[in-house]
Design a protein around this nucleic acid. Structure first.
Length: 883
RNA sequence: GCCCUGGUGGCGGAAUUGGUAGACGCGCACGUUUGAGGGGCGUGUGGAGCAAUCCGUGCCAGUUCGAGUCUGGCCCAGGGCACCA
């Protein structure tokens, strides 16, 4: 496509104006970005730390920044003091991989990327307060990560323990779960295997309940995120029960959410990783075979072992345990589906009432003993009696039954389960052989003294009984695991620990922080962590005994960096503490957090955890770091694969922002991205769509220019208050203001387009009053500023505006004028719209009925009919029901 | 399997929370301006019908004078979790 002289001139003019205003905002920062004096209505707002990846930011990234900047400018215009900082999440794996591939030091590439991104931000016209910039890979920042670590260690919240990690045998390194997606190393494609390593953990599980409770206070968070966190924490209430193994003189503790089914527990099943496994197998004649099976399950790739529909596999240990409630012997099994680090790594199998146990029992011939009935005997008879009575009762009962329990069909069972019929006892009764487990609640049978009790009551009684007998008791467990922060990586915060032969693990004293990452290390991608090969770093002396010692070479997960950076923004140069509590108290918690849904769990949970720790340490006074959260949707586009997917460079469907801005200007791109659709939803990019907002902005400009050409005073006030033009203006101010407050940027743009159409008519109308027209144009330009800041500032100046729009206030509206004077009433005959009559707003029903009757279309429908009644909605609708 | 979201013209999407469905924009059509192309400007644009009118917010019922909106059931798409005892 060839550009003509005309478009070039237009394009050049746009770019000239945008450059002019960027320079002004930058040169006169103090006038626009004043964060020194937080006012009482201080609104503190921010976005996610952008990752300084190697790629330039493209259109897919733009939404969060445009959205934030629009909100920022709007708030400032309405007089709120806003602090909108930006910083860099600079540590992490991509930079290190880049070093391995390209031979460029992570620090060099990271700092270059940061410089490039800052330049991009500048070109978009986003207002960040760069005086508060934070860069996490600098010792001035990460020394506080180390300081936090020492505090956590003191409180017993940082611990070292053995754990299975994802190991890539080819790269000889540990991978985070995200880096081992699909069970293969993201770098070399080798299958990842589990490997036991000693690792540092932060005990986030100690905070599970507080993290859960806090979720109820997050009213301004998306419900979805709150639910995701709740599921992730995964609180389950139940009971611990001890099963004795007399032949070993040991007991195995299990956790169950269904203690009411304990009389149906016909086996004890342990994870292959369970500590008792070696002893269980000690004297087994097939010991070697069993041990090799255990070893093979333990080394199995996570992805295979946990795959959907993975075959359940187990072995009988030959030992027996005693069911503590029936007193009967049950076999002790090992099975691949038992998870080592949930609960106690052991479970009681109740095949009759658990789908997984059922599947396992069927495969291995373990007895299935039913102990729960969906309905109590006498209740069922009563039910059957009533069933013959009213149909109403039947429907209600079935509804209740459906919510109470469900029949889970056995995996692979042929036909779907038959429609529920409560006259059947349970699926097991149907034809002798049970076809599935009844996992719902009901009433106990064959359960000794508990028979006849309901599930919920029996649960409590059985748990209490276990407690009384000293073999367990009520227990709450969580799905949440402790946070593994060790990374065998160079490009991260060194963990401030030293290992001494004599004293073991010794923390680096606070006065010796930071432990600085050595500038040079061999990046080969082979042989593990490059830090291990830096002798000057590794060799040290023991802080405790002064003898020779080895420094910890693991570095921290980068999520540690992002768990508290938002507080460091407030006091980034502080070198005596992570931040000044007084400054933090003034601004925090964050009023509005904006970011993608991808952080719904990890980052947001870790930040909430850290905030609680900081509160316990006395550094902050609140528990929740982010009062309000907004998740913007992704920008999608058709990719070469033929699917509409998230825009990204790797998918080959990205659109260059740099090129687009160089051609259309930042304002047009901003307006278009905001116009795409509701910001919380995904939006599909269309290359042609930008012409709408582009034309709109150019028409705003030409309309103002045409008005200025008339020589009228652009600062003039309207002569009269109540005119149709004034009403349109007030209405638009109202709508746009409400839209911005509701993050409804796309409708704000639409309403401004309508206002332009009105303004354009005024400018073309020789009879229009100049003050009216000028005031409408000034309102348009002011309201437009959050969306198209450069153009609006330029037009404001050309219309004689003395101050930047950032400082000159937001237009107000008179509610009485923010609606049209006449109301258009829909006239319905028997609920169908037959005509529309225009009346003065506030007209009475009588007046409107008269007006409607005068309308020929209405008259025709009323003719020969009898009026039954009339429904009247003020200023809106008249419905005459006839027969 | 469980838990969320969502389903409205050719397309992106509006709809004051039960009151005129389709704002605004894209696309398309016609007209106009221009030497031409691009661009600009104007008009029209849910479907059917010459018209009166009828039909239309995933499907089926229901409540109501009136349902995109509320209730029950179902279908489809997207997302999250998933052998968590």
């Amino acid at each position: 496509m060839q550009r003509t002289a005309a478009t070039t001139a237009k394009g050049e003019e746009i770019l000239r104006v945008e450059a002019k205003w960027r320079d002004r905002w930058e040169a006169d920062r103090a006038a626009f970005v004043d964060t020194k004096e937080p006012a009482g209505n201080g609104k503190y707002l921010l976005v996610m730390l952008p990752y300084p990846s190697g790629d330039r930011l493209h259109v897919g990234h733009a939404r969060t920044y445009f959205l934030t900047d629009a909100l920022h400018r709007f708030l400032r215009q309405t007089g709120v003091t806003v602090f909108c900082p930006m910083g860099w999440d600079a540590f992490g794996l991509p930079a290190e991989n880049y070093a391995i591939q390209m031979g460029i030091h992570p620090r060099t590439s990271t700092l270059a990327n940061i410089a490039a991104m800052k330049e991009q931000f500048r070109s978009w016209g986003v207002l960040y307060d760069w005086t508060k910039e934070v860069t996490t890979c600098e010792p001035e920042y990460y020394r506080w990560n180390q300081w936090f670590f020492l505090k956590l260690l003191e409180k017993g919240l940082a611990v070292r323990r053995k754990s299975a990690v994802n190991w890539c045998p080819s790269c000889e390194t540990v991978l985070a779960n995200e880096q081992a997606e699909g069970g293969v190393c993201e770098r070399c494609g080798t299958a990842v295997v589990p490997r036991e390593l000693e690792q540092w953990f932060l005990k986030i599980t100690d905070y599970a309940d507080r993290l859960l409770d806090g979720l109820d206070t997050l009213g301004e968070w998306p419900e979805k995120v709150v639910t995701m966190q709740r599921n992730w924490i995964g609180r389950s209430t139940g009971a611990d029960l001890d099963f004795a193994i007399p032949s070993l003189n040991e007991t195995v503790r299990v956790f169950t959410t269904r203690p009411d089914t304990v009389f149906g527990a016909t086996a004890l099943i342990l994870a292959p990783e369970h500590a008792l496994v070696p002893r269980l197998l000690e004297v087994n004649p097939k010991r070697a075979e069993l041990e090799s099976w255990v070893a093979s399950v333990r080394s199995q790739e996570r992805i295979v072992r946990e795959a959907e529909g993975a075959e359940k596999d187990g072995r009988d240990t030959g030992r027996t345990a005693i069911n503590p409630f029936t007193g009967q012997e049950v076999p002790v099994w090992l099975a691949n589906f038992v998870i080592a680090d949930y609960g106690t790594g052991a479970l009681m199998a109740v095949p009759a009432h658990d789908t997984r146990d059922f599947e396992f029992a069927k495969k291995y011939g373990i007895p299935i003993v039913k102990v729960i009935e969906p309905e109590r005997e006498e209740k069922r008879e009563e039910f059957l009696r009533k069933k013959e009575g009213t149909g109403d009762f039947l429907r209600r009962e079935e509804g209740e039954g459906a919510t109470r329990g469900s029949v889970a069909a056995a995996a692979g069972a042929g036909p779907p389960p038959p429609a529920r019929d409560l006259s059947k006892k349970s699926p097991a009764d149907d034809a002798g052989a049970p076809v599935g487990a009844y996992t719902g609640e009901g009433f106990l049978i064959a359960s000794g003294p508990f028979s006849g009790k309901s599930s919920s009551i029996a649960r409590e009684l059985i748990a209490a009984e276990a407690a009384r007998r000293g073999i367990g008791g009520p227990r709450v467990r969580y799905r949440l695991r402790d946070w593994l922060i060790s990374r065998q990586r160079y490009w991260g915060t060194p963990i401030p620990m030293v290992h001494c032969e004599k004293d073991g693990w010794v923390p680096v004293p606070e006065k010796d922080l930071p432990v600085v990452l050595p500038p040079d290390a061999p990046f080969t991608g082979k042989g593990g962590n490059p830090l291990e090969k830096v002798a000057s770093f590794v060799r040290t002396t023991c802080p405790s005994c002064g003898g020779p010692a080895r420094r910890e070479t693991d570095t921290m997960d980068t999520f540690v960096d992002s768990s508290w950076y938002f507080l460091r923004y407030l006091d980034p140069r502080n070198d005596t503490e992570p931040f000044d509590p007084a400054v933090v108290k003034e601004w925090a918690p964050v009023d509005q957090y904006i970011g993608g849904i991808e952080h719904a769990i990890l980052h947001l949970l870790y930040a909430r955890f850290f905030t609680r720790i900081l509160k316990d340490l006395g550094h902050v006074t609140f528990e929740e770091p982010f009062s309000a959260l907004f998740n913007q949707g992704m920008i999608t586009r058709l990719s070469p694969s033929g699917r509409v997917e998230k825009m990204s460079k790797s998918r080959g469907n990205s659109v260059s922002l740099d090129a687009l801005i160089a051609e259309k200007g930042a304002d047009a791109v901003r307006a278009f991205v905001l116009f795409l659709g509701p910001p919380e939803k995904d939006a599909e990019w269309s290359d042609e769509g930008i012409s709408g907002p582009e034309r709109f902005l150019w028409r705003v400009r030409s309309t103002v220019e045409r008005f200025l050409a008339t020589g009228a005073d652009p600062q003039a006030q309207p002569a009269k208050g109540d005119t149709p033009a004034a009403r349109v203006r007030h209405m638009t101010i109202k709508k746009v203001t409400e839209d911005f407050r509701a993050f409804s940027f796309h409708t704000a743009v639409a309403h401004l387009m309508e206002l332009l159409n009105g303004a354009s008519v005024l400018v073309n109308d020789a009879g229009a009053e100049a003050g009216e027209t000028a005031t409408t144009l000034r309102a348009l330009v002011t309201l437009l500023h959050p969306i198209a800041p450069h153009l609006s500032e330029e037009l404001n100046e050309r219309m004689g505006g003395k101050k930047s729009l950032l400082m000159s206030g937001w237009p107000t509206f008179d509610p009485a004028l923010a609606e049209m004077e006449s109301a258009s009433i829909a006239v319905q005959i028997s609920g169908k719209v037959r005509a529309e009559v225009s009346v003065r707003r506030g007209s009475s029903e009588k007046e409107v009925v008269a007006a409607a009757e005068a309308n020929p279309a209405v008259a025709r429908w009323l003719e020969g009919k009898q009026r039954v009644k009339t429904i009247w909605v003020q200023d809106r609708l008249l419905n005459i029901v006839v027969k």
